Simulated scan of single mutants.
Amino acid sequence: MLRRLFIATCLSFAALPALAQGGALDLSMKDPITLDVASIEVESEYVAPMKEPNVDHLITITPSDAVRLWASQRLKAGGSQGRARVVIRDASVREKELPRTTGIKGWFTKDQSEEYDGRLQVDIIVEGSARGFSGSVSATVTRSTSVREDVSLAERDKTMLAMVKEMAADLDRQMEPAIKSNLFPVVIIQ
């Protein structure tokens, strides 16, 4: 566990740019959604517990990082006043040990040993726009994955990073239509 923390800490400083440039998450091929607000801010109400069963802080790109990247790639401010706040309510990944085969049969069996349950809960709140509109949209995304007991540290990290990528893609699939239908008074059509 300590080894994973050290590796994740060392890699996390350099990983966000790599993630954005064709790495694990790249939404740049999609057109940004331009909102009639002067600024878009990302806030996190989620504070990683930094202890078991939570492991989100050990992932090279945390779910919170993925939401920040999503917001920077998909949302664009195009107005003169007001703001949109992207509020991260939950960005957790929890590890759960799975039961393993015991006895002689267990010596010859490679079981799934850990399950990772991820959850993103994100709100976008528009306040004080030039059009006088205020409103919000929300999305909640969950994903789970598991690893075999003989998985390497690198493969475990790759598996969790893939789950974070899938959660961010799910978030995008939920948020885009919600923004266009519920925040339409401030969506600028280009």
Rank of each mutant, 00 (worst) to 15 (best):
R173W: 05
I104P: 00
Q190D: 15
V137C: 01
T159I: 14
I189E: 15
V93Q: 04
L16M: 10
A84E: 08
A168W: 02
L161H: 02
K110Q: 10
E114T: 11
I88M: 06
A14R: 07
I33M: 09
S129P: 00
D123L: 06
R3Y: 11
E166R: 09
V151Q: 09
A20G: 09
I88A: 07
V141C: 02
F184G: 08
C10I: 13
V47D: 13
G106M: 07
S146D: 15
D65F: 01
L19P: 00
S129C: 06
A178L: 13
G128Q: 09
D65Q: 09
G132W: 06
T142W: 02
A8Q: 07
S72I: 04
A24I: 13
D56K: 03
R68S: 12
C10Q: 12
V93E: 06
V147W: 04
A168F: 03
L120C: 05
E97A: 15
I61S: 11
L19I: 08
A178W: 02
P17D: 11
G106D: 10
P53W: 06
D26M: 08
A154M: 10
E95H: 03
I124V: 12
G103R: 07
P63G: 05
R119L: 12
P49Y: 06
D65I: 03
L69C: 03
R83H: 11
I7M: 11
K76V: 04
T145V: 12
H57R: 09
E127V: 10
K165G: 14
I189F: 04
V164N: 03
T140Y: 01
E41K: 09
I40Q: 08
S39Q: 14
M160W: 01
V137P: 00
F133D: 06
K96M: 10
E155L: 10
D150G: 01
P99N: 10
L98K: 05
R119G: 02
L58Q: 13
E176H: 02
D26N: 15
M160I: 09
T109P: 01
R85K: 15
H57K: 05
L16H: 01
G79H: 08
L16W: 06
L153F: 04
M163C: 04
D117W: 04
R68N: 15
S181G: 01
R83P: 00
D150Y: 08
L183T: 05
T159E: 13
M175P: 00
Q21F: 11
V86N: 03
R131Q: 15
V126T: 08
R74W: 01
S72D: 14
Q112A: 14
A84F: 02
G132M: 09
K30D: 14
S28V: 07
V87A: 05
A139N: 00
C10N: 07
K51L: 10
E43W: 01
G79N: 11
I125S: 04
